[in-house]
Design a protein around this nucleic acid. Sequence first.
DNA 1: ATGTTC
Length: 376
Amino acid sequence: MGNPISGERSAACARISKFYNRAAWIDGRAEEQLEQVAGWPGMTAVAGFPDLHPGRFGPVGAAFLADRIWPQLVGPDIGCGMALFRLDLPRRRLKLDKAARRLAVLEDGADLHQALAALDAAGLTGLIGPEALGTIGGGNHFCEVQVVDEVMDHTRTDLQKDDLCLLVHSGSRGRGAGIFQGLDDSWKQGFAAESDAAARYLALHDAAIRWARVNRALIASSASEALGCEARLICDTVHNHVVPHSDSWLHRKGAACPEGGLVPLAGSREAPSYLLEVPDTVPEALGSVSHGAGRKYDRSSMHGRIRKTRSDLAALTRTRFGGRVICGDRDLLLEEAGQAYKDPDQVLQNLAGFGLANAVARLLPLVTFKTTGGAA
DNA sequence: ATGTTC
C-alpha cells in the first residue's frame, strides 16, 4: 500500500485506538496498514475494530478522522451497508429448498417501475439511474434469511425467539466504483475539504449512499415478496462512507455507523449474526463499530484451503445449522466459505469488553443467497 | 467492490 505522498513526512502520527485483545485473530499486515494510514497527512485519529483485516488501500474494519477527504479510505463500494428486516412469516411456513428457489428472483433486480418510484422518493431522479437496482452483487454481498436464536435484551427490540429476519449486505454496485475510478489522480493525496474536487466527490458520494440504501430496501422487498411475506426495517447501517465529524472528516471502511443505536454484525454462513446495541460512550471509537466478523483468510488463499471435489463443493451449499447456500459461482462459493471468516463470538466479546456494543439478539443463517449463475 | 472477463 504505502503512503501515497512519497517524500512527504507527516509531522505527527494520528492517535491509534485498537479495540481488540490478544485473543483476537488479527493479520499483522492489517495492523501495519492501520499504522501506515495513521501517518498520512492530516490524519488525527484512527480506530481499529476486532474484525480488522487487510484491504486494497488500507485496513478494513477501521475508522479514520482527518482534516481532508481520502476517497481510497471509503473505497469503490461507496454506501455499502447491512440492513436487517423482520419478516412476518412464521418459521414453520419457511420451506428451505422452496425459499432457496424463489429467491432466484433477486438475480433479475427490481421491477423498473418500482425502481424508478423508489429513486424518485429518494430524490435521485436525474442524478443516478435504476440500472442494477435490486441486485446483490458479488464478493461478500448476500441476502440471507435468518432465524432469531435468542433475544438477550428485550428492552431494545420486539424480536422474539424463532422470528424470521432478512439480512441484506449490498452497496452501490457499479455506481460507487464508477465514481471512484472517474476521479482524477489528485485523490491520491486526499482532497482538501474546501476544494472543488472535494465538493464534486461528496455530491456523487452522497447520491451513491442514498442509491445503496434504496438498493437494500428493494432487495428486501423482492425477497419478501418471493417468500410471500412483508419485510419491516429494523436498521440499515452504512459501513463505507465519509461524513463530517467534529470539524473533521470521518471515514468508515468496513466500520458501521449505528442507526438508532443499533447495528447488525454479520457472522458467516457457518456462524451466528448479531443485532447489537451501541451505547456510543467511547469517543476513541469514533462513533463506529464492527459490521461483521471480518475475513480471516484472503480470497486467493481460500483456493488452497478447500478441496474442489464435487462432494467438497456440494458440502459448502449446506451449513452446520441445516441451512442452504445458493451460489452458482464455484470460486465465490469457496472464497466465501464460513472458514474464511473470524469467529463472530470472539469479535462480539472484544466489542463488549471495550464497552462498544452489547448483544441484543443472536440470529442463525437459514438461506444464504449469493447468485444462481456465474462460472460453471 | 466492479455493466470486471483468460
